[in-house]
């Protein structure tokens, strides 16, 4: 029904003749009337304080992540070795990554490493001898370094002495010149008695 004009529309004409559409319309109208009886529910009070995660939460997460990483590294059996060819990081669970040594010479796994190295272990006295040799080499390096430093200090001392002497000479010279000028000035001065000087 066109309410404004008060005349039946084409839809009204169809509904008047179609039983099915008339039933649908009645169902929808009835349901809408029922829904209209439902009143809105009063909303509860809200707590809108926005909670922010404390800063130490990130630290805790970082600590857990670092711990996990250490665990993984420990389980993986990471092995770092330095050779003249460079530094090699070897992980027990995988093959050695990069090496200049022919692959046949490298063990496939960590277990192989143990198997290969055990029979060739160095005796203890040989180890001590090598350690002493290393200590002596280290001491030699330290002594050489100390001698170099001492030599540099001696050179620096001589340079400083020289600079001081030069400075003193320049100062004496200026002092001498100043004295000379003063002396000449005094010689050229003529004394003019003042009235206040009279007894």
């Amino acid at each position: 029904m066109d309410a404004a004009a008060g005349v039946p529309t084409a839809a009204d004409a169809h509904i008047a003749t179609c039983v099915r559409c008339r039933a649908d319309l009645a169902a929808i109208t009835g349901t809408r009337e029922v829904l209209a009886q439902v009143r809105p529910v009063e909303a509860p009070a809200l707590d809108l304080r926005i909670h922010q995660a404390p800063a130490w939460g990130w630290l805790r997460m970082a600590a857990v992540a670092a711990g996990f990483l250490l665990l993984v590294v420990a389980l993986a059996g990471v092995e770092v070795s330095t050779t003249p060819e460079g530094t090699t990081v070897r992980i027990g669970l995988i093959k050695p990554p990069i090496s200049n040594v022919p692959s046949a010479a490298l063990p496939e796994t960590r277990v192989d490493t143990v198997y290969v190295t055990q029979p060739d272990m160095v005796p203890m006295d040989e180890v001590k001898r090598m350690q002493d040799q290393q200590l002596r080499a280290f001491a030699g390096i330290v002594n050489d370094y100390a001698a170099t430093v001492e030599g540099r200090r001696a050179v620096d001392y001589e340079l400083i002495q020289y600079e001081i002497e030069q400075l003193r000479l320049r100062t004496d010279d200026r002092l001498y010149q100043t004295n000379l000028v003063m002396y000449q000035l005094l010689n050229n001065l003529t004394y003019v008695p003042q009235t206040s000087d009279k007894p």
Binding site: D24, A27, I28, G30, T31, V34, L35
Partner: peptide, 11 residues
């Protein structure tokens, strides 16, 4: 439309 119709049927 279909929602209201279904709701009517359920009720």
């Amino acid at each position: 439309f279909y929602g209201l119709k279904a709701l009517h049927a359920v009720l």
